[in-house]
Design a protein around this nucleic acid. Structure first.
Lengths: 234, 234
DNA sequence: CGGTAATTTGAAGAGCCTCAACTAGGGTGG
DNA sequence: CCACCCTAGTTGAGGCTCTTCAAATTACCG
């Protein structure tokens, strides 16, 4: 789909401001007032909920190119803690831009709608993974999910996944303890499904991983046939 | 927030068609072509994913008034199976209406965007519940969630929750077996947190339920301050 | 090169599942 | 009108998965 000049202008505004953030930086804390979203230019981030007992659940791992903190665009209270898993660069996506988009760039607005739907499906898949599959399958599903998403922006990527998450992070994402994540990674390696290096993992048998995890790639191009026509450019 | 005459017209079109459906009816199956969404006029429905081993995970329980099958509005393939938990009435929400809304009713489009964000937050909460709390807490959180949502449309509702889900349904929602759901309901009753009747439940101690489940009500009114102005009516 | 964070491994126990049997209700057909 | 059946709920026993706690090893960073 080709963007019009006007649409490109809007998106370019978003990249005008860039903020370098280090690992562990919290872009927003739960209950903070929500003032907008971010575009993650580089680095990995995570949205997480804190539990009363002190543990946390990562609800979404954000990769470069993702729009981060989308609930902050539309909802008042900050619902999730957004923090950097690695150092990186973020561009603020203020609410005012969202207003402009919905007012003047209908097609772009519809695209954002699609974007959130894709996120929604992704969350549904994680619920199914955590709720109905065992530990090994959950870890496998996460590895496949990250790999497929990274391939979208880097088609050259092969079977090597550079994974800047600690086993604690992984556990917080798939609902396991770090200790058990460690055992499951070992199990996957013992079964020849993956090979582990420092800070990276090779997926030796993607069909095998998909089989044990029930993973289905949903990252094909979404439907854009229903989008309204963009307004004429000046 | 007051809707304009034009906006009301669009929404009224959605209610023009009504289809009566019985319990168990599948509005859409996974992988079916997705042709749109529905407005659930009455009855309860569920969106679910089927797992390779034959089990299923309910990703969302839909109550009267909900827009059901939102991914089908924006995405091509049907990703979830949508089925009726009770008999009820649904109104089709075809994609073409979504196109119209985004083209001619910017503020309404933004409202839909907010709606999906609310859904997204709800899914995040369930992930945290399933991933990081024990069985009793998960059941308690579900009961509270349903109660709070029903109160939005029926403020007169007190502590009695009419619950037309089987224990199997509940288990599929919170990631447990029906057998264990049964034990947890009994435990909640033994602790004086709930009282069980046939087809309904009384929440005797909502603060207590909230405490053990870590449940936080997010169903306060969403932020609408950022919405663009609606177009002038003719 | 020292100190801290992250990973790894073991042992024991808790939580949830599986299997199985039994009960209660609600509808249907004889 | 009752016998029957099918679904849903209930309860018990045993086992497996995952957690917890603890300690040792390795990697990383200043």
């Amino acid at each position: 789909m080709k963007l019009t000049a006007g649409e490109r202008d809007v998106l370019r505004v978003l990249e005008s401001q860039r903020r370098t953030v280090s690992r562990g930086t919290m872009l927003r804390r739960e209950r903070d007032p929500a003032d907008g979203m971010w575009v993650l230019q580089s680095g990995w981030a995570a949205s997480a909920l804190g539990m009363p007992d002190g543990s946390r659940q990562i609800t979404k791992v954000h990769l470069p190119g993702d729009v981060v903190g989308t609930p902050g665009g539309a909802l008042n209270g900050g619902v999730e803690t957004v923090s950097m898993l690695t150092s990186g660069i973020v561009s603020p996506f203020p609410r005012s831009v969202l207003t402009t988009v919905f007012r003047d760039h209908q097609r772009l607005a519809a695209l954002f709608f699609v974007l959130v739907q894709v996120e929604r499906v992704s969350l549904s898949d994680r619920i199914a993974s955590i709720g109905r599959t065992d530990a090994r399958a959950r870890v496998a599903a996460l590895l496949l999910d990250l790999t497929h998403r990274l391939r979208l922006t880097n088609p050259a990527m092969e079977d090597r996944l550079s994974l800047p998450m600690t086993q604690e992070d992984i556990g917080d994402t798939v609902g396991l303890t770090a200790v058990h994540v460690n055992r499951m990674m070992r199990a996957l390696a013992d079964d020849g499904l993956i090979a582990r290096g420092p800070g990276s993992i090779r997926l030796l048998d993607e069909p095998g991983l998909a089989r044990i995890s029930g993973y289905i790639s949903r990252w094909s191009s979404p439907d854009t046939s229903w989008l309204p026509e963009p307004p004429e450019d000046a």
